[in-house]
């Protein structure tokens, strides 16, 4: 696949906007201009995050896991050791007191993600709105990010796949993880598949929102009630926060 830019088409001519009416004008054969009409990204100035209240997370309930994998077309291939898991329920027992709880763990969408630091090709990256993604166009499948992630959030695709979801491309030889349902976020749904499923089941343990908007529910609750991050000692400032652990 050619990665070179066409000499006919400079990048500057070509920036276009989301959901905008795009007027195109052919200047000469192969040379044309595209004008986005007032494009604004859904990503500007925001930082999307999740707040998970473990006291409301029911032991044995896997609604969020099922919904996520359904939404993104993550199927089991019958080999649990190599099957991808974007989100999983973790069961915890306090060694000192025997206190038990369970909670979902997925990509924590760090502000300073180790996966992005170690990626040799910049395939791991943070979007301006804080979502950490893998660009599968440049991922070479070295798995260094999986070595570096403190949350075991990433999966490597160990075999050829078919029938991916159109909004969630996945393919053999690349690494993937929770996208914070970036297709839903960009569509303006204002929620993720896991949060929807948790609310639908009536647990309401998960909240999605903009951490940078002081009026959002998530920001208000974080401010008023406090929260913790997993491996807070690493100071990665994850966008997924927990209450009750």
């Amino acid at each position: 696949m050619s990665e070179e830019n066409s000499p006919n088409l400079s990048r500057r001519q070509f920036i276009s906007g989301a959901a905008a009416v795009v007027a195109s004008l052919t200047v000469a054969p192969g040379v044309f201009l595209l004008k986005p009409a007032g494009a604004a990204s859904n990503a500007d100035g925001k930082r999307w995050g999740l707040l998970i209240d473990t006291s409301k997370c029911a032991d044995g309930c896997t609604a969020c896991v099922t919904a996520c994998h359904e939404e993104n077309g993550v199927h089991s291939l019958g080999r649990p050791q190599t099957d991808a898991q974007w989100i999983r329920k973790v069961h915890l027992t306090d060694r000192a007191t025997g206190h038990q709880q369970s909670l979902p763990v997925m990509c924590q969408h760090c502000e300073h993600p180790p996966c992005v630091d170690v990626c040799p090709t910049k395939a791991s990256f943070v979007r301006p709105d804080g979502i950490v993604l893998v660009d599968k166009h440049t991922c070479i499948g070295c798995r260094y990010c999986m070595m570096a992630c403190p949350y075991k959030a990433r999966s490597f695709i160990h075999e050829p796949l078919t029938d991916q979801k159109p909004h969630a491309p996945r393919g053999k030889g690349t690494v993937e993880s929770c996208t914070l349902c970036v297709h839903k976020v960009d569509r303006g749904d204002g929620t993720t598949a896991c949060v929807e499923a948790c609310n639908k089941d009536g647990h309401r343990a998960m909240t999605f929102g903009d951490l940078n908007d002081p009026d959002s529910e998530i920001a208000r609750r974080l401010k008023e009630q406090g929260s913790t991050a997993i491996r807070a000692d690493l100071r990665l400032n994850p966008a997924v926060r927990y209450q009750g652990i």
Binding site: E3, N5, F14, S16, G17, A18, L133, V182
Partner: peptide, 19 residues
């Protein structure tokens, strides 16, 4: 291919999707 390639990075990296 150029349209796809250019807007691919816009969409993927910055969330500026052009339907």
């Amino acid at each position: 291919m150029n349209i796809l390639m250019h807007e691919r990075d816009e969409a993927k990296r910055y969330g500026r999707r052009n339907p």
